[in-house]
Design a protein around this nucleic acid. Structure first.
Length: 467
DNA sequence: TGAAATGTTGGGGCG
DNA sequence: ACGCCCCAACATTTC
């Protein structure tokens, strides 16, 4: 084939990139393209952190492609129309792209496929973002798993795993095509950024992996649950945008495990388990797209959550009077990122203490998180609310104070985000109500945990018909 | 990838 | 010395 388009979407890198690598093997000339899709940019769950990370990643990708002798064309508008137009401008015979698993993207790709077929252009979607796709790990009966443990077992058993894709050594110089400039800031796309977010781009992704492997990875099993430590990988935004490849991450962690002692091996296993959770929720979304519109266990759609805007407002702003919840939410608002343990705590608090619809929290997370990902986010929220696959059972309710004391024993994380509590040293920071005179300007708890816990159990009983 | 309520046990204070 | 009670500490059950 003479000419092919490599349509970048959520694989914003040149290393270990399936679509780019396969296109470069099959075509003499490659036209790299990214489309700023108006429909995605206008989605109600899009946010400034993610737009900004995307733009930085595009600039980095542009530099990497130029270093290979090529250039990234940027278009903006309706993806189907822009792609068809680009095909005609380039006279390409085919379009290659990494497969996406979200319902919106799947439907968009169906429209793309029909449109390109109509103008005689091939459209090839290739596996890139995951080790195993939604139809590759199934029960013996050929059904998708909806429980994690057997899924993980089957995931691990499946061999051989896909190998990394070679990075193209050079790309041919493309035609001088029109291209929009990459917007300087997310504000140009309607998303003013008011926070300092993690750095985007493939180079940053590679650095994040290297530094994780050199530092936190070996003690991940023991330290990942403590938000005051730098115990996690921070790779989530890179995995979301594909500024790092999943095969590279897996290979890196396995290499680390081979050269290290038992705790490091154990840590590698725990970390890989998290990568499996990521694919578990991706296959749930791909096989059951309805989870974006309701509970996986649909009988729980009838739960009478309370639609209290002022409680929700307090949760969003980190003004609930529960230190671990408020510190976590202020961290999210200020950085676009939140530690995984804290995501569990604040999401369970929204659902089971505030009794608010979990979908409100799901959307707020999407709007704020730099790594906001429909599959992982929905899976996590349904887990916390007790409405999902393999979810925390409805009666498993975190006590936010106990969780704080357990996972932030010195109150270090609290002090980092709640200056009002600096007069309460150490673990006392978790119980400001014991010394209200010292907790200046810090709100009293907006709900009583013991009381709300009972109310939550009753809420679920009302739907379960009293087992 | 819980927490609270309830049950059991055993050491020590005390009359 | 003995029985009684208290209550940690731990185990089990329940949601």
């Amino acid at each position: 084939m003479k000419r092919a388009i490599c349509w970048f979407r959520r694989d914003l890198r040149v290393a270990d990139n399936a679509a780019l690598s396969i296109a470069a093997r099959q075509a003499e000339q490659i036209f790299p393209l990214f489309i700023l899709d108006d429909e995605i940019l206008a989605a109600p769950d899009m946010g400034a952190a993610r737009v900004s990370f995307l733009l930085e990643s595009l600039r980095n990708l542009q530099n990497s492609l130029r270093a290979l002798g090529s250039t990234l064309a940027i278009r903006r508008g309706n993806a189907v129309e822009e792609l068809a137009r680009f095909c005609q401008e380039t006279q390409a015979e085919a379009v290659f792209a990494g497969r996406n698993y979200e319902p919106f993207c799947v439907q968009r790709d169906q429209r793309v496929d029909a449109r390109l077929n109509a103008i005689g252009v091939g459209f090839e979607l290739v596996k890139d973002a995951v080790i195993w796709e939604e139809r590759e790990v199934l029960t013996r009966a050929g059904q998708p798993f909806s429980v994690f443990t057997p899924y993980a077992k089957a995931w691990h058993a499946k061999k051989p795993r896909p190998a990394a894709f070679p990075r193209p050594k050079s790309l041919s110089k493309p035609l001088p095509l029109a291209s929009c400039p990459i917007p300087e800031t997310s504000a140009e796309l309607g998303y003013p950024l008011k926070q300092a977010i993690p750095a985007g781009g493939e180079d940053s992704g590679a650095k994040a992996l290297t530094s994780f492997l050199a530092q936190a990875a070996a003690s991940y099993a023991n330290q990942r649950d403590f938000p005051a430590l730098a115990g996690t990988s921070r790779l989530s935004p890179h995995l979301h945008f594909g500024t790092i490849g999943i095969r590279s991450v897996l290979a890196g962690v396995e290499r680390m495990a081979r050269s290290a002692g038992d705790t490091a091996k154990q840590s590698a296993a725990v970390f890989i388990n998290e990568l499996v959770w990521r694919e578990f929720y991706l296959q749930i979304l791909a096989n059951y797209p309805r989870v974006l519109n309701g509970c996986f266990r649909s009988e729980y759609d009838a739960l009478p959550w309370r639609e209290d805007k002022s409680l929700f407002q307090a949760w969003c702003a980190g003004q609930t009077g529960f230190p671990i919840v408020d510190a976590a939410m202020r961290c999210l608002n200020a950085t676009g990122w939140m530690h995984n343990r804290l995501r569990m705590i604040v999401s369970m608090f929204l659902a089971k203490d505030l009794l608010l619809p979990w979908q409100w929290g799901e959307r707020y997370f999407m709007q704020q998180l730099v790594d906001g990902d429909h599959a992982a986010n929905n899976g996590g929220w349904q887990w916390s609310a007790g409405t999902g696959t393999d979810a925390a059972p409805y009666f498993r309710i975190f006590n936010p104070t106990t969780q704080g004391e357990k996972f932030d024993p010195e109150g270090a994380f609290i002090h980092q985000w709640l200056p009002e509590l600096e007069a309460l040293p150490g673990p006392a920071a978790h119980r400001p109500w014991d010394q209200p005179m010292l907790a200046r300007k810090y709100p009293a708890p907006i709900v009583d945990h013991a009381q709300q816990r009972i109310a939550c159990l009753a809420l679920f009983q009302s739907v379960r018909g009293g087992h």
